[in-house]
Design a protein around this nucleic acid. Structure first.
Lengths: 218, 218, 218, 218
DNA sequence: GATGAATGAGGATTCATTCAT
DNA sequence: GATGAATGAATCCTCATTCAT
């Protein structure tokens, strides 16, 4: 049969997108060619363009769907956990951050591309639609938190996750200061060695501590 | 005179580099061509290559020299200020961050390029030399802080500035979530509006508050 | 049809390669641009690179395939001719040389590029594979000669053809001594006028005469 | 004193030219830049152009002067040797060839450039003048040989040296068939291993044997 | 829907040559 | 005569995208 069901279509699209995601984990956007994505996916170059109008659309899609999934999962986990105090919330947010770093680091890296690179050539209509859906999920997560913690406004809850991503994203950019092109610089540079996970958790912890302190004081 | 003094040569190099920096404030690295840098600098394409071996070297140079200048200036300001308590230190660091954002934002944006893009083609020798010099300055700043605040180790002082850059860098990546390609999305997205300066200062403030709190507790 | 058969692909590859070969008959390697090859072939620049990874690969391909064809044809001709004595062999080799000069002169000229220019950028794997195949053919020709003339070892037969190419190649390099950039120098320079064909045949004839004489003596 | 004597000028010209010659012994013409010649000579780039109008002129100069010297020396050696018979002449020519290979191989390599590369951009006037002078020397050598061996015409004597260069030049082009870009190919390729000196001497020997045999027969 | 051949704009980089000092 | 900064033409090669089959 030549007419694929919607499901089959989605599967091939997902195959291509996930291949691109894996490649992006190890390679720079500009060093990933449509050719290599097609080859690694086991499809023809033209097929890639059947599923994504442009190269940028692939990565915009990954960014949107990835974050949608991540926050959907975060909502579930938050609601399962029946957290009652701010300390519990902080623990939850830190463990959520650990999950983000362990399992969705490329998602964070995609953020760097979004504004300066992807938006220039990604489909505006699709992107905005995807982004609105993402914001709905994000807003729902924030609302759930607000419903459990009246002192945390929805806006503040949203901002907490923006800061979460920012810290991880920023530390990625500042990592590898003690090496050049993967080759370690011989000097002792322990003061400039960034461990993304340790440093992100510590930084986010301090941030939340300070934030909740101010909350109580006001 | 065709035999330029070292100073004259440095001036022309600075002219080219600064032109590139201005362009980078508004344009993506891959959308800046050597051609356009040359044209904007008012020199021939070949002249650019007389001063920088590769395109990547231009931006690596900007990154290193920019940070060297920023931290040198920070050292002066710190020592002028005769800060005596942690609150004063926090104020100093926040005002320093404001300066960073107001006057050196492209510097932070350059960090994104460093690992994945610049190091692949920048001169390793020059870069490592420049980086070692930068680390010396950084370390000196950290030491000066440690000398004034015994409870802040040199390592911690260094880390504070890494976190400072990370937060600003990360928020840049997360900014403009309420628009697409500079065009605002019509919905009300105030919860997803990032003000780099406000959010960076708030985030860094909370972080420092939490950090200094832990410091006192321990 | 957009899925070309292997044969169709070979034809287009041959079209590009043969265009390059014709250009090389009249122009120096460095004055032949990919642009001009594409234009002369009636295809786009990118198409040339679809068939050959580098400019050097085009000419390496021509060299290998050209010699493979020439020696394959030489084998056929040798076996058709039922040569019985050394004089007959000499006549055969001289007539073979005439054919080489009349119909495959650019092949000889390509030898100059091989070591110093082509090998630096041509695909090593493809080249070695092509060269091994060429050597097999060459060896087969030498073996056939040895089978007819026990006194001529396989090694010697191989060397005869290397000398054949060398003499023609060398005389090409020494030709046009009586002109400058195709413009004749007015003096009488008949002593320095090289006729590639006449001189190559005479030289090869003398060489073979001397070689076979030594053969009989030993 | 700012006005250099003719001798001083010649010395600097010779310095630049000889540096270029040494570089050409190991590097392809197109991989030798004026910049590198200037640097290796210890002079400025502009100075090179004070002594040679174009890059091609440098190598044309080397070719002409090199051959002038070689044949001048050959004349002396011939006249010192008082050769009386053809066997003695053959020995002289072979020993002369050995000298050519051992001490002037780059001269032979320059021949390859002459027609296709140098003449296009070398000064015609200078070249023709240099070439006429070279032909006079060449002719004198041929005449001296003819005066000792009446059966060898001046034209034939001239041709012998053209063939000498051709054989060496051709074998250079055919050498290194058993390696790729200086890396040996692992197969046993002894039949395709060219020893420039051995093979050139053998080939030239056979050629002379055959030539002198025909001479006697006629 | 899948394919992959063809396209050609675009970019980094090289280098001989000029010429003001 | 020496210098070396400036020039810009020229070249190879990449790669997203199109589209006929």
């Amino acid at each position: 049969m030549n007419i694929k069901t919607a499901n089959q279509k989605q599967q091939k699209q997902a195959l291509i997108a996930n291949t691109a995601l894996k490649m992006f984990a190890e390679t720079n956007f500009y060093d990933i060619s449509i050719n290599s994505i097609a080859a690694a996916s086991g499809v023809a170059k033209g097929t890639v363009f059947n599923y994504f109008k442009t190269k940028e659309n692939i990565f915009m899609h990954l960014l949107l769907v990835g974050y949608q999934d991540f926050f959907t999962q975060t909502i579930s986990q938050f609601n399962e956990n029946k957290i009652t105090d701010l300390n519990g919330l902080k623990d939850f947010l830190l463990s959520n951050t650990e999950d983000l770093i362990d399992n969705h680091l490329t998602l964070i890296k995609l953020n760097v591309l979004r504004g300066p690179i992807l938006e220039g050539k990604a489909s505006m209509e699709e992107t905005i639609q995807g982004r609105k859906y993402l914001y709905q999920i994000h807003e729902r997560l924030a609302t759930d938190i607000h419903n459990s913690f009246a002192e945390i406004s929805v806006a503040m809850a949203n901002k907490i996750f923006i800061v979460q991503s920012s810290i991880v994203s920023g530390l990625i950019n500042l990592s590898d200061l003690d090496s050049f092109n993967q080759q370690p610089i011989n000097n002792d540079l322990s003061d400039f060695t960034v461990s993304i996970k340790d440093d992100a958790l510590t930084t986010f912890d301090c941030y939340l501590t300070g934030l909740f302190l101010k909350l109580k004081e006001s």
